[in-house]
Design a protein around this nucleic acid. Structure first.
Length: 414
DNA sequence: TCTGGGGTCCTAGGACCC
DNA sequence: TCTGGGGTCCTAGGACCC
């Protein structure tokens, strides 16, 4: 923040690992290299470029994916391997420049302005970064370089796979304007359809319109945003140290049409609250708003939320809140079924270690017993794993909760 | 397109306050 | 008796991203 809004030099890098999960799998199992690989089961979490060549895409249903690419090798995800690979890649980012803004597990913006004299040009730095990630972590990564973040993001996408692309300041329009609007970050299927209906298919056509026209078509914020992007007025700086604004967990409940008992959902709710409250405490955060997330048999969704008077990370308080909301939503669930239950805690604030409740002094005694239980449970789970302590209601029941997935040594054919 | 899990940000209406 | 304008917070829904 407070950095120069418009800069003469293309010195923002967007670094984006290629088909991240699939690349990790290919790295760790030589039999997968050079072959179409799909990570995931019911839904495609990632596809290698060999699989993408057949039209396989992330978020696609598994059945459709295997229809498109019957020879694909399907492997279950190994999240801990991805987290570890990501950690190592981010170490290389941080080693390149202190100005790193992480976007997700596999991509980040890096501001390398001001490093030219000491280290080299942004292009040199980008090339070196790619080489280090390849050498030290064994993964392909693409890098886009431009004057602004969004342009750098588009550039890295255009450069894929395993590419590097610099958009010089005097070549920005030439680069951006012929591209379809879908290339812009924030333009999904619905916004694209609205723009198409207005006769806008390319970013150049977007740039020809008035800002007001766009805000009418897609809403105020989105319209302004699109207008700024198309006209290359995106002053957003690389922001270091952004903190998470919510923490949540959800679990799909399998086939539609099955009746769920209140007890069954309560057990699932308790498991979700346990997990999220623990993550809250692990991150030394407290939160104020609880959102219960439902998906019905017809796959439409609804949420019910409640905001507490004080922030907390206490499991008991959140469980009670979740149960209240489940009560509120129960008639809806009985009527329309339930295929997914999720929770999110938002309104997060920092809390010191062990301070899990914003305490009003006369009130603290009542909650402290629950806090002590949370401490004890967290410690047991830290030492022996999440499965070490389970609520009595969960013991001996197979509720379809995801168990840690072990690496599958022999990938099966789809 | 028969559908996972983790997030971000925006919009709109109502309650409430000055 | 009728009725302004502005602001904040909360809830619910929606679009989008990886």
């Amino acid at each position: 923040m407070g950095r120069i809004a418009s800069r003469p030099e293309a010195s923002i890098l967007h670094a984006d690992l290629d088909s991240f999960f699939a690349s990790v799998e290919q790295r760790d199992d030589p039999r997968l290299r050079g072959r179409p690989v799909i990570v995931g089961g019911g839904v495609v979490l990632a596809a290698s470029y060999e699989a993408k060549a057949y039209g396989v895409r992330s978020a696609m249903g598994g059945r459709q994916a295997s229809r498109l690419c019957p020879d694909a090798l399907v492997v279950p995800p190994r999240f801990s391997a991805y987290v570890e690979a990501s950690r190592r890649v981010f170490e290389i980012f941080e080693d390149t420049t202190p100005l790193v803004e992480g976007i997700s597990i596999d991509e980040a913006f890096l501001d390398v302005g001001g490093l030219r004299r000491l280290v080299g040009s942004p292009e040199t730095i980008g090339a070196a970064l790619r080489e280090r990630v390849r050498e030290e972590v064994g993964l392909p990564i693409s890098v886009g370089i431009a004057r602004t973040k969004y342009l750098a993001k588009v550039a890295s996408a255009v450069s894929k796979p395993d590419g590097l692309l610099l958009v010089p300041p005097d070549g920005e329009r030439e680069f951006l304007h012929p591209l379809p609007v879908e290339r812009l970050w924030g333009v999904g299927a619905i916004t694209a359809a609205k723009l198409h209906a207005d006769g806008i298919r390319t970013i150049g056509q977007l740039a020809e319109r008035e800002e007001l026209e766009l805000t009418v078509a897609v809403g105020k914020a989105a319209g302004r945003h699109l207008w700024a992007l198309a006209n290359l007025r995106d002053p957003r700086p690389v922001e270091v140290g952004r903190r998470r604004r919510s923490i949540g967990s959800q679990s799909a409940l399998g086939r539609a049409g099955r009746r769920r008992t209140r007890e069954e959902l309560d057990v699932r709710l308790a498991a979700l609250v346990d997990r999220v409250a623990r993550r809250l405490r692990g991150g030394e955060r407290i939160g104020r708003t609880f959102t219960l997330r439902l998906r019905f048999d017809d796959y439409t969704r609804a949420t019910r939320s409640a905001t507490l008077p004080r922030s907390t990370a206490a499991t008991a308080t959140w469980l009670e809140t979740g149960r209240r909301l489940l009560d509120v939503a129960w008639p809806l669930i009985e009527e329309r079924g339930c295929t997914l239950l999720g929770i999110t805690i938002s309104g997060l604030e920092a809390a010191g270690p062990g301070v899990w409740e914003q305490l009003e002094l006369p009130l603290f005694v009542e909650e402290s017993r629950g806090d002590r239980l949370d401490v004890a449970l967290d410690q047991v789970r830290d030492r022996f794993g999440s499965a070490a302590v389970t609520r009595a209601a969960q013991v001996g029941r197979h509720l379809g909760l995801e168990m840690p997935t072990l690496p599958d040594p022999a990938p099966r054919h789809a």
